[in-house]
Protein backbone atom coordinates (compact mmCIF):
# COMPACT_ATOMS: atom_id res chain seq x y z
CA UNK A 1 0.00 0.00 0.00
CA UNK A 2 1.25 3.45 -0.68
CA UNK A 3 -0.16 6.84 -1.12
CA UNK A 4 1.11 10.36 -1.33
CA UNK A 5 -1.62 12.05 0.68
CA UNK A 6 -2.22 12.29 4.35
CA UNK A 7 -4.60 9.51 5.25
CA UNK A 8 -7.29 9.58 7.84
CA UNK A 9 -8.33 6.20 9.18
CA UNK A 10 -11.81 6.15 10.65
CA UNK A 11 -14.50 3.59 11.36
CA UNK A 12 -16.71 4.93 8.57
CA UNK A 13 -16.30 4.75 4.81
CA UNK A 14 -14.88 7.74 2.98
CA UNK A 15 -17.06 9.73 0.65
CA UNK A 16 -18.10 8.28 -2.68
CA UNK A 17 -15.88 10.74 -4.57
CA UNK A 18 -12.81 9.71 -2.59
CA UNK A 19 -13.61 6.08 -3.31
CA UNK A 20 -13.86 6.65 -7.03
CA UNK A 21 -10.61 8.62 -7.07
CA UNK A 22 -8.91 5.85 -5.18
CA UNK A 23 -10.21 3.22 -7.59
CA UNK A 24 -8.65 5.30 -10.34
CA UNK A 25 -5.36 5.60 -8.43
CA UNK A 26 -5.13 1.84 -8.27
CA UNK A 27 -5.73 1.29 -11.99
CA UNK A 28 -2.24 -0.19 -12.39
CA UNK A 29 -3.20 -2.98 -10.02
CA UNK A 30 -6.35 -3.57 -12.05
CA UNK A 31 -4.35 -3.91 -15.29
CA UNK A 32 -1.80 -6.15 -13.65
CA UNK A 33 -4.42 -8.48 -12.21
CA UNK A 34 -6.27 -8.68 -15.52
CA UNK A 35 -3.02 -9.31 -17.33
CA UNK A 36 -2.00 -11.93 -14.81
CA UNK A 37 -5.33 -13.77 -15.05
CA UNK A 38 -5.07 -13.84 -18.83
CA UNK A 39 -1.51 -15.10 -18.84
CA UNK A 40 -2.11 -17.72 -16.21
CA UNK A 41 -5.33 -18.93 -17.82
CA UNK A 42 -3.77 -19.75 -21.17
CA UNK A 43 -0.32 -20.75 -19.99
CA UNK A 44 0.52 -24.40 -20.69
CA UNK A 45 -2.54 -24.89 -22.88
CA UNK A 46 -2.06 -26.21 -26.38
CA UNK A 47 -4.62 -24.02 -28.10
CA UNK A 48 -3.99 -21.02 -25.85
CA UNK A 49 -6.21 -18.06 -26.39
CA UNK A 50 -8.19 -19.98 -29.05
CA UNK A 51 -10.18 -21.43 -26.19
CA UNK A 52 -11.71 -18.02 -25.63
CA UNK A 53 -13.38 -18.34 -29.01
CA UNK A 54 -13.91 -22.07 -29.08
CA UNK A 55 -16.17 -22.18 -26.04
CA UNK A 56 -18.97 -19.94 -27.34
CA UNK A 57 -18.52 -21.17 -30.91
CA UNK A 58 -18.79 -24.83 -29.98
CA UNK A 59 -21.74 -24.23 -27.67
CA UNK A 60 -23.50 -22.33 -30.44
CA UNK A 61 -22.73 -25.19 -32.82
CA UNK A 62 -24.22 -27.79 -30.51
CA UNK A 63 -27.37 -25.73 -29.95
CA UNK A 64 -27.66 -25.20 -33.69
CA UNK A 65 -27.52 -28.95 -34.29
CA UNK A 66 -30.03 -29.71 -31.57
CA UNK A 67 -32.54 -26.90 -31.98
CA UNK A 68 -32.26 -26.02 -35.63
CA UNK A 69 -31.63 -29.40 -37.23
CA UNK A 70 -33.30 -31.78 -34.79
CA UNK A 71 -36.08 -29.68 -33.29
CA UNK A 72 -36.52 -27.53 -36.36
CA UNK A 73 -36.36 -24.07 -34.78
CA UNK A 74 -36.53 -21.26 -37.34
CA UNK A 75 -35.75 -17.57 -36.99
CA UNK A 76 -37.57 -14.98 -39.04
CA UNK A 77 -34.74 -12.87 -40.46
CA UNK A 78 -31.48 -14.68 -39.82
CA UNK A 79 -30.03 -18.21 -39.69
CA UNK A 80 -30.29 -19.82 -36.28
CA UNK A 81 -26.55 -20.40 -35.97
CA UNK A 82 -25.67 -16.71 -36.11
CA UNK A 83 -28.48 -15.99 -33.66
CA UNK A 84 -27.11 -18.61 -31.25
CA UNK A 85 -23.54 -17.40 -31.77
CA UNK A 86 -24.51 -13.83 -30.87
CA UNK A 87 -26.29 -15.14 -27.78
CA UNK A 88 -23.44 -17.33 -26.61
CA UNK A 89 -20.87 -14.61 -27.27
CA UNK A 90 -22.51 -12.60 -24.50
CA UNK A 91 -23.52 -15.57 -22.42
CA UNK A 92 -20.03 -17.12 -22.25
CA UNK A 93 -18.71 -13.84 -20.95
CA UNK A 94 -21.49 -13.51 -18.37
CA UNK A 95 -21.24 -17.12 -17.31
CA UNK A 96 -17.44 -17.29 -17.01
CA UNK A 97 -17.12 -13.90 -15.35
CA UNK A 98 -19.76 -14.44 -12.71
CA UNK A 99 -18.54 -17.94 -12.02
CA UNK A 100 -14.93 -16.84 -11.67
CA UNK A 101 -15.49 -13.47 -10.02
CA UNK A 102 -17.90 -14.73 -7.37
CA UNK A 103 -15.05 -16.72 -5.86
CA UNK A 104 -12.40 -14.07 -6.49
CA UNK A 105 -12.27 -12.45 -3.04
CA UNK A 106 -12.01 -15.80 -1.31
CA UNK A 107 -9.42 -16.86 -3.85
CA UNK A 108 -7.38 -13.71 -3.17
CA UNK A 109 -7.60 -14.11 0.56
CA UNK A 110 -3.89 -13.55 0.93
CA UNK A 111 -4.03 -10.20 -0.82
CA UNK A 112 -7.14 -9.02 0.95
CA UNK A 113 -5.94 -9.90 4.44
CA UNK A 114 -2.44 -8.51 4.03
CA UNK A 115 -2.58 -5.46 1.84
CA UNK A 116 -4.76 -2.46 1.49
CA UNK A 117 -6.29 -1.59 -1.88
CA UNK A 118 -9.85 -0.87 -3.03
CA UNK A 119 -11.47 -4.27 -2.67
CA UNK A 120 -13.64 -3.83 -5.75
CA UNK A 121 -10.53 -4.26 -7.88
CA UNK A 122 -10.51 -7.99 -7.22
CA UNK A 123 -13.92 -8.97 -8.70
CA UNK A 124 -13.69 -6.24 -11.32
CA UNK A 125 -10.34 -7.50 -12.59
CA UNK A 126 -11.79 -11.02 -12.75
CA UNK A 127 -14.50 -9.63 -15.04
CA UNK A 128 -11.90 -7.62 -16.94
CA UNK A 129 -9.91 -10.72 -17.79
CA UNK A 130 -12.94 -12.32 -19.42
CA UNK A 131 -13.76 -9.10 -21.21
CA UNK A 132 -10.62 -9.63 -23.29
CA UNK A 133 -12.03 -13.04 -24.29
CA UNK A 134 -15.31 -11.38 -25.20
CA UNK A 135 -13.60 -8.92 -27.55
CA UNK A 136 -11.89 -11.81 -29.31
CA UNK A 137 -15.18 -13.70 -29.69
CA UNK A 138 -16.80 -10.59 -31.10
CA UNK A 139 -14.32 -10.69 -33.98
CA UNK A 140 -15.51 -14.21 -34.79
CA UNK A 141 -19.13 -13.07 -34.54
CA UNK A 142 -18.47 -10.23 -36.98
CA UNK A 143 -16.73 -12.73 -39.24
CA UNK A 144 -19.85 -14.92 -39.12
CA UNK A 145 -22.04 -11.93 -39.98
CA UNK A 146 -19.88 -11.09 -42.96
CA UNK A 147 -20.11 -14.73 -44.03
CA UNK A 148 -23.90 -14.80 -44.22
CA UNK A 149 -23.99 -11.28 -45.63
CA UNK A 150 -25.52 -9.17 -42.89
CA UNK A 151 -26.21 -5.59 -43.84
CA UNK A 152 -23.89 -3.09 -42.27
CA UNK A 153 -25.72 -0.13 -40.79
CA UNK A 154 -24.73 2.89 -38.73
CA UNK A 155 -26.29 1.13 -35.75
CA UNK A 156 -23.18 -1.04 -35.46
CA UNK A 157 -21.56 2.01 -33.88
CA UNK A 158 -23.71 1.27 -30.85
CA UNK A 159 -21.96 -2.05 -30.18
CA UNK A 160 -19.71 -0.51 -27.50
CA UNK A 161 -22.80 0.81 -25.70
CA UNK A 162 -24.17 -2.73 -25.45
CA UNK A 163 -20.86 -4.09 -24.34
CA UNK A 164 -20.99 -1.52 -21.56
CA UNK A 165 -24.57 -2.58 -20.75
CA UNK A 166 -23.43 -6.18 -20.51
CA UNK A 167 -20.39 -5.29 -18.41
CA UNK A 168 -22.55 -3.32 -15.97
CA UNK A 169 -24.85 -6.32 -15.47
CA UNK A 170 -22.01 -8.81 -15.11
CA UNK A 171 -19.85 -6.58 -12.93
CA UNK A 172 -22.78 -5.84 -10.62
CA UNK A 173 -23.59 -9.50 -10.15
CA UNK A 174 -19.91 -10.27 -9.64
CA UNK A 175 -19.55 -7.61 -6.96
CA UNK A 176 -22.69 -8.78 -5.24
CA UNK A 177 -21.89 -12.49 -5.28
CA UNK A 178 -18.19 -12.13 -4.45
CA UNK A 179 -18.99 -10.01 -1.39
CA UNK A 180 -21.68 -12.41 -0.28
CA UNK A 181 -19.34 -15.34 -0.77
CA UNK A 182 -16.93 -13.92 1.80
CA UNK A 183 -19.58 -14.25 4.51
CA UNK A 184 -21.62 -17.14 3.17
CA UNK A 185 -19.68 -19.85 1.45
CA UNK A 186 -23.02 -21.25 0.31
CA UNK A 187 -22.64 -18.89 -2.62
CA UNK A 188 -20.24 -21.18 -4.39
CA UNK A 189 -22.89 -23.89 -4.49
CA UNK A 190 -25.61 -21.49 -5.50
CA UNK A 191 -23.74 -19.85 -8.36
CA UNK A 192 -23.62 -22.79 -10.83
CA UNK A 193 -27.31 -23.46 -10.25
CA UNK A 194 -28.14 -19.78 -10.56
CA UNK A 195 -26.20 -19.53 -13.83
CA UNK A 196 -28.07 -22.50 -15.25
CA UNK A 197 -31.43 -20.96 -14.41
CA UNK A 198 -30.29 -17.60 -15.71
CA UNK A 199 -29.35 -19.15 -19.06
CA UNK A 200 -32.81 -20.64 -19.45
CA UNK A 201 -34.50 -17.41 -18.45
CA UNK A 202 -32.54 -15.32 -20.96
CA UNK A 203 -33.04 -15.18 -24.72
CA UNK A 204 -29.64 -16.67 -25.39
CA UNK A 205 -30.52 -19.65 -27.58
CA UNK A 206 -34.19 -18.79 -28.12
CA UNK A 207 -35.87 -15.59 -29.21
CA UNK A 208 -37.89 -13.59 -26.72
CA UNK A 209 -40.69 -13.65 -29.32
CA UNK A 210 -41.33 -17.19 -28.16
CA UNK A 211 -42.21 -16.01 -24.71
CA UNK A 212 -45.99 -15.48 -24.37
CA UNK A 213 -47.02 -11.85 -24.75
CA UNK A 214 -48.42 -11.56 -21.20
CA UNK A 215 -45.06 -12.52 -19.69
CA UNK A 216 -42.97 -10.15 -21.80
CA UNK A 217 -42.58 -7.47 -19.12
CA UNK A 218 -41.78 -9.98 -16.41
CA UNK A 219 -39.29 -11.55 -18.76
CA UNK A 220 -37.74 -8.12 -19.31
CA UNK A 221 -36.99 -7.79 -15.59
CA UNK A 222 -33.96 -9.89 -16.38
CA UNK A 223 -31.55 -7.17 -17.53
CA UNK A 224 -29.78 -9.62 -19.84
CA UNK A 225 -33.01 -9.89 -21.87
CA UNK A 226 -32.95 -6.25 -22.87
CA UNK A 227 -29.21 -6.34 -23.36
CA UNK A 228 -29.36 -9.29 -25.78
CA UNK A 229 -32.45 -8.05 -27.62
CA UNK A 230 -30.94 -4.62 -28.07
CA UNK A 231 -27.62 -6.06 -29.19
CA UNK A 232 -29.32 -8.25 -31.79
CA UNK A 233 -31.43 -5.30 -32.87
CA UNK A 234 -28.38 -3.31 -33.83
CA UNK A 235 -26.62 -6.32 -35.34
CA UNK A 236 -29.41 -7.95 -37.32
CA UNK A 237 -32.26 -5.44 -37.23
CA UNK A 238 -34.50 -7.82 -35.27
CA UNK A 239 -37.52 -6.30 -33.49
CA UNK A 240 -36.99 -4.45 -30.24
CA UNK A 241 -39.84 -3.62 -27.87
CA UNK A 242 -38.86 -0.31 -26.32
CA UNK A 243 -40.90 -0.77 -23.13
CA UNK A 244 -39.31 -4.13 -22.43
CA UNK A 245 -35.93 -2.64 -23.22
CA UNK A 246 -36.59 0.21 -20.78
CA UNK A 247 -37.56 -2.25 -18.05
CA UNK A 248 -34.33 -4.17 -18.56
CA UNK A 249 -32.29 -0.96 -18.39
CA UNK A 250 -34.01 0.05 -15.17
CA UNK A 251 -33.43 -3.44 -13.76
CA UNK A 252 -29.72 -3.19 -14.67
CA UNK A 253 -29.39 0.17 -12.93
CA UNK A 254 -31.15 -1.13 -9.84
CA UNK A 255 -28.94 -4.19 -9.81
CA UNK A 256 -25.86 -1.98 -10.14
CA UNK A 257 -26.72 0.32 -7.23
CA UNK A 258 -27.86 -2.50 -4.98
CA UNK A 259 -24.71 -4.49 -5.69
CA UNK A 260 -22.38 -1.57 -5.07
CA UNK A 261 -24.23 -0.75 -1.86
CA UNK A 262 -24.05 -4.35 -0.65
CA UNK A 263 -20.38 -4.56 -1.52
CA UNK A 264 -19.54 -1.31 0.26
CA UNK A 265 -21.44 -2.31 3.35
CA UNK A 266 -19.67 -5.65 3.57
CA UNK A 267 -16.15 -4.77 2.46
CA UNK A 268 -14.92 -3.46 5.82
CA UNK A 269 -15.30 -6.93 7.28
CA UNK A 270 -13.56 -8.79 4.47
CA UNK A 271 -10.14 -8.91 6.11
CA UNK A 272 -11.66 -10.00 9.42
CA UNK A 273 -13.94 -12.69 8.03
CA UNK A 274 -11.64 -14.23 5.42
Amino acid sequence: MRTTHAIRIRPENDGILAEIRELFDYRELFYQLVWRDLKVRYKQTLLGVLWAVLQPALTALIFTIIFSRVAGFQMKEIPYWIFALSGFTFWTFANSSVNFASNSLVHHKELVTKIYFPRMIVPLSAVGAYFADLLLTLLVLFGGMAYFGATVTWKLLLVPAFLLFLVVIVASLSLFLSALNVRFRDVKFVVPFFLQVWLFLSPVFYSSDWVPQKYQYVFALNPLTGCLNGFRHILFGTDLDMVSFGISCAAAFTLFFVSVAVFKSMENDFADVL
Binding site: M1, I7, R8, I9, R10, P11, V112, T113, K114, I115, Y116, N268, A271, D272
Partner: peptide, 9 residues
Protein backbone atom coordinates in the same frame (compact mmCIF):
# COMPACT_ATOMS: atom_id res chain seq x y z
CA UNK B 1 -5.78 0.09 6.37
CA UNK B 2 -6.44 -3.60 5.98
CA UNK B 3 -9.13 -3.45 8.63
CA UNK B 4 -11.07 -0.50 9.96
CA UNK B 5 -11.21 0.47 13.60
CA UNK B 6 -14.45 0.18 15.53
CA UNK B 7 -13.96 3.66 16.94
CA UNK B 8 -11.32 6.32 17.16
CA UNK B 9 -9.14 7.55 14.35
Amino acid sequence: RIVRPTSGE
